[in-house]
Computed example of a mutant assay.
Amino acid sequence: MFDEAGAAVRLRVSLAAWRWAAGSGLVPAADAGEGRWSRVVVESVDAEGVRAGLRGPVPACWAAERLTEALGVPVPLRRPRVTAAAVGHLVRAGYLVRLGGEREFPDVHPDQVAALARRRDLPAVLDRCVPLGPGEAAVRLGVRRTDFDHVVRLGWVSPVGRVDVDLGRACGGVVEVPLYSAVDVALLPVVRPAVDWWGVRRTGPGRRSLLAVLLPVVPGGDLVELGEVARIAGVGRVAVTSWRRRLPGFPPPVAGQGTGVRPVFERRAVVAWLLAAGRLAVPGAPGTASLRVSGAGTRTGAVRTVRLDDPVLVLAEAVTGTDRVSGWLPETGADVLDVLGEGPAGLAVERLTAPGAGAVGLGVLGGARVSERVRSGGGWCWVEVSWPARVRGR
């Protein structure tokens, strides 16, 4: 009977090659217990085939960069970069095979990384399998780190694990860092609909968090009525009443709270049921708009295309009004808009493709300005570009 190391020695192949062959199905499954093979199985394996099957391995940092690139360039809004530690979590979840290296930062097969990078559900896989540190959780939520610290203080999320991180002697040595479920973090704006998340996300550096005035939830006191359950699920109250009556497993009302007419339920239990029943989805990537701009009245010919994430387009009903488009973009993109709009004629929007702009988009000959800009950590800015409605064209 052989474990993985013994099997590799018996066939005179590297341990990484055996691990890849076992993980990818090139050799029979372990038949003598978990991670153990019988002599008959090991000696029946084609050693040359095992050696030929391995290309690599590659370190976890390389795999992390490839997966980050697969998310998009630049990395999409509210999506943290994939780290080497995240590769370790993907190995433990069974999406990659550890070929060597440290257990927390494993070496993996480049072809398997490439296959994972091609998956359309890669963001969902990362949310399910990779817990986030406080800084990464703030990025996933789209807020500043100080805002996320308030989220923790309020008791809205709890750690799902902890990890020791060595910051070096000058920074305090080894510290314990809490880890949070990416799904729980991403769902916060959905399950806490009463919070002004739009305002929280637009709070700039140095300003007090809008969450600072809120009080923490008390144990057993995070309760919701049917009306708020309906808001969380994005349906009417009648639908929730029907679910409660027809579908199994709906959480029971909290005893001693509410009334027979207005029962109350534990928020966490309701959210868990909605997810399990397929009535609630983790928010995906926000929508995008494409903004092709140039400096109006200039002869430089400088034309740039920037991408606005989570855009909002408001078109005035009267020609005397003002049109506005707002959204998030990297700080470098905001700088491009500022530079092009420095002239007296402002910006010319050669083409705007966004929800609400119509199938062919719209254009603005000139007079567009960056009317507001808020920097909110993580290298992103919220900007609003406005122009007189009378100069709008299609």
Rank of each mutant, 00 (worst) to 15 (best):
Q112I: 01
A86E: 07
P110L: 03
R92K: 14
V139C: 07
A124V: 12
R92D: 13
A85R: 15
F105Q: 14
A115Q: 03
P131I: 11
H89P: 11
R92T: 11
V108T: 12
A84R: 10
L116T: 08
R119D: 03
E136D: 13
A86W: 12
G135W: 03
V139M: 04
V97M: 04
A93R: 15
R81W: 07
L126I: 06
R140I: 01
V125S: 01
G135K: 09
G88I: 06
A114R: 14
V108W: 15
L99A: 03
E136K: 14
G100Y: 12
G101C: 01
E104V: 13
A138T: 03
V82P: 07
A138L: 00
G100N: 12
R140W: 08
H89I: 10
A115H: 06
R128G: 02
L132P: 00
R119A: 08
L122T: 08
R119P: 02
R128M: 02
R92S: 12
L96D: 00
D111N: 12
C129S: 14
P131G: 06
R81C: 08
R128C: 01
P110W: 01
H109A: 15
V91K: 03
G133T: 13
V139W: 04
V91W: 08
T83P: 04
E104T: 12
R92G: 10
R140A: 15
R98V: 05
V130T: 05
A115M: 02
L90Q: 12
G101E: 02
G101D: 05
A93P: 15
A114G: 12
P131Q: 11
V97K: 09
R81N: 03
R98M: 06
L99N: 04
A85W: 15
E136G: 15
D107W: 12
P110K: 03
A114N: 05
R98T: 02
T83F: 08
H109E: 11
V130I: 08
V91P: 06
V82E: 08
A138Q: 00
R118W: 03
V97L: 10
Y95K: 15
R92P: 05
P131L: 10
R128T: 02
V130R: 08
P134W: 09
Y95C: 14
L126P: 04
V130G: 05
E102L: 13
P110H: 02
A115S: 06
R81E: 12
A114W: 07
H89Q: 14
D121V: 09
A114T: 09
L122R: 10
A85Y: 13
V87F: 07
T83A: 09
Q112G: 14
L99I: 01
A117Q: 06
E136P: 10
P134I: 05
V139R: 11
D121L: 06
L96V: 03
V113S: 01
A114S: 13
A84M: 01
G101L: 05
V91M: 04
D107M: 11
P110Y: 00
T83D: 03
V139S: 01
E104M: 11
A138D: 02
V139P: 07
L116D: 06
P110M: 00
L90Y: 13
